[in-house]
């Protein structure tokens, strides 16, 4: 705020004047800042998006050695029916040198904390590098998923083994509803 035209009032008046200007200016700044927030926050996910539904998956439709991709909260999720060979590989590699160390059993834990079953693994299907969907490639170096975008290799437990991705494929939160179905979310 520019100074008003100089006039006869000086001294104590200057303090009073400055106080008023500073107070008015500060209050205006607070007002503007408070007004800005709703306009920023409105771009955050809306309530309907946040409360998106859970997804139920019927496991009986997935044959051994196959996987399905289901949509959960707008994102793809792998539900893989692992073969004994895959399970064995995953468990063996618990003790390998891992970029993001985690045991296979830890990765199967259900949302409520109960242990999972080794033949079913539920993973969020986006590469932790830049978000592409990896492909399951039989006979790849680590026997698991391979990201076509920048060549990240994941093992049969979805752990990162080679390539630019920094972390394992995150497990999706799921629980067993009964023997043959799970609920994701």
């Amino acid at each position: 705020m520019a100074e008003p035209a100089a006039n006869a009032h000086q001294g104590d008046d200057t303090t009073r004047r400055d106080f008023i200007f500073i107070a008015a200016g500060a209050a205006s700044a607070v007002g503007v800042a408070a007004t800005v927030w709703p306009f920023i926050d409105q771009m955050n996910p809306a309530a309907d998006t946040r409360a998106l539904s859970t997804t139920e998956v019927d496991l009986s439709a997935v044959v051994l050695g196959q996987q399905i991709k289901v949509m959960w909260q707008g994102k793809p999720v792998f539900v893989r029916h692992r073969t004994a060979d895959e399970i064995g590989r995953a468990q063996r590699d618990d003790f390998a040198t891992l970029k993001d160390p985690q045991s296979d059993a830890e990765r199967l834990v259900q949302e409520d904390g109960a242990a999972g079953r080794p033949e079913w693994i539920v993973l969020q299907a986006s590469c932790t590098h830049l978000g592409c969907v990896p492909t399951f490639v039989e006979g790849s170096s680590f026997g698991g998923w391979f990201c076509p975008c920048h060549g990240s290799d994941y093992d049969t437990s979805g752990r990162i083994r080679r390539g630019p991705a920094p972390a394992n494929l995150p497990p999706a939160p799921y629980v067993y509803l009964n023997e043959t179905s799970i609920r994701i979310g």
């Binding site: 809306a46 309530a47 309907d48």
Partner: peptide, 13 residues
């Protein structure tokens, strides 16, 4: 209606 109900501060804007 979604703006008024679900978008953060949508009702205000």
């Amino acid at each position: 209606q979604r703006i008024d109900r679900d978008v953060p501060f949508g009702w205000l804007i």
